[in-house]
Amino acid sequence: MKMNSIKISFVTALFFLTSTVTFAQDFQGKAYYFSKTPMNLGAWGARLSEQQKKQVEDRLKNRLEKTYILTFNKTESIYKEDEKLDAISGATDTWGNNFSPGPLYKNVKTKTFVQDQEFYGKQFLIKEELQTLEWKIGTETKQIGNYTCFKATCKRTDFDVSWWNFSWDRLRNNYVENKSDSIKTADVAGLKSETLKEEIDMVEIEAWYTPMIPVSQGPDDYWGLPGLILEISVNNTTLLCSKIVMNPEEKIDIEAPDKGKEVTKKEYQEIISVKMQEMRDNRGRNSGRRP
């Protein structure tokens, strides 16, 4: 699939002839995105043969290449992964799902952010005010399918772009005092938000939006531009829209998730950090037992 290839299907060609009021009240759209993340095996990968690298790449394909669906109207949207079976095992990526973003609802009018996260069978509901992004809109343009797109950039903290994921480095760096690389579960459990260091690592975000679809929506929690975001690059991952369907025959109710324990992003990060450290400690104790 070419990166600049996008198929556009419409229920009716009269969509572009409708009034702004009708557009705002009655329409619904679905945008399909696919993600591409290069595989980086580091020093370990340098020791592998090309065949071994190919086997690893095939095994990690579900984590490196994903498909998402953004269902949107003028003010609301639901963004979620379109899960697919592993081509090798015939199963979904259960482990990877613990550290993937869950279904996300956002309302750009009320600035509502609600994300459904499941972590090892427990349901969480992350609720916060939708973060305002300080976009810098440029004059550079490019064509994505039938759409003329404009470039925009902004900066976000590393935490903001990956709070749902887990990193041992982040866990260590969150301590005001790091006495060793070994972190006790009791210490992690007692960690409070006020003791966390402010994230200072900034990530450059590059987006391409089209005013031809005048909604302030985009994939994930990106929004705030005068048109639908069709492409966005964050770190080494690029999300690109591959298909848009306006006014689909089967519409869905765009509603915020409402089941799960309500927490903030930082509270959720603390919860999964505690759990991962507990699992690590348990593995260490079990491996140390004599048969």
Rank of each mutant, 00 (worst) to 15 (best):
1 M>R: 07
2 K>R: 09
3 M>L: 08
3 M>T: 10
5 S>G: 12
9 S>D: 10
11 V>H: 08
18 T>E: 05
19 S>L: 07
20 T>G: 11
21 V>A: 13
23 F>Y: 12
23 F>Q: 08
23 F>M: 12
25 Q>Y: 06
25 Q>A: 08
29 G>R: 00
33 Y>L: 07
34 F>L: 11
36 K>A: 11
38 P>N: 02
40 N>I: 14
41 L>P: 01
43 A>R: 03
44 W>D: 09
45 G>H: 05
45 G>S: 07
50 E>M: 09
51 Q>S: 08
54 K>D: 00
55 Q>F: 06
57 E>L: 12
57 E>I: 10
58 D>H: 00
60 L>W: 05
67 T>C: 08
69 I>P: 02
72 F>W: 03
73 N>M: 09
77 S>L: 06
79 Y>N: 07
81 E>A: 05
81 E>S: 04
82 D>F: 10
88 I>T: 14
92 T>F: 12
92 T>R: 13
96 G>M: 08
96 G>H: 15
96 G>C: 13
99 F>P: 02
103 P>C: 09
104 L>Y: 04
106 K>A: 00
107 N>V: 11
111 K>S: 01
111 K>V: 02
112 T>R: 00
114 V>R: 05
114 V>E: 06
118 E>S: 12
122 K>W: 13
123 Q>R: 14
124 F>N: 04
125 L>F: 09
125 L>P: 06
125 L>I: 14
125 L>K: 13
126 I>L: 14
127 K>Q: 12
128 E>R: 07
132 T>I: 01
133 L>A: 03
137 I>V: 07
140 E>F: 04
141 T>N: 03
146 N>F: 01
149 C>N: 02
150 F>P: 01
151 K>L: 02
151 K>F: 00
153 T>D: 00
154 C>L: 01
155 K>H: 06
156 R>E: 01
160 D>H: 00
162 S>P: 02
164 W>H: 13
167 S>K: 04
167 S>Q: 04
169 D>Y: 06
172 R>H: 11
173 N>K: 12
174 N>V: 03
174 N>W: 01
175 Y>A: 15
177 E>S: 15
181 D>M: 09
181 D>W: 12
181 D>R: 08
182 S>E: 12
183 I>N: 00
187 D>A: 15
189 A>Y: 11
190 G>T: 10
191 L>K: 08
193 S>H: 01
199 E>P: 07
202 M>V: 13
206 E>V: 07
207 A>P: 02
214 P>D: 06
215 V>F: 03
219 P>L: 08
221 D>G: 01
224 G>P: 02
227 G>Q: 05
234 V>N: 10
237 T>Q: 09
238 T>K: 13
240 L>C: 09
242 S>I: 06
244 I>Y: 01
244 I>P: 00
244 I>S: 02
245 V>K: 04
245 V>G: 03
245 V>F: 04
247 N>P: 05
249 E>V: 15
259 K>W: 10
260 G>K: 13
261 K>F: 05
262 E>T: 12
263 V>P: 03
263 V>L: 07
263 V>G: 04
264 T>Q: 07
266 K>G: 01
266 K>N: 06
269 Q>T: 15
270 E>G: 11
271 I>D: 04
271 I>G: 04
272 I>W: 11
274 V>F: 12
274 V>L: 14
280 R>Q: 08
281 D>A: 10
281 D>F: 10
284 G>D: 15
286 N>D: 14
288 G>M: 15
290 R>M: 12
291 P>T: 05
291 P>G: 00
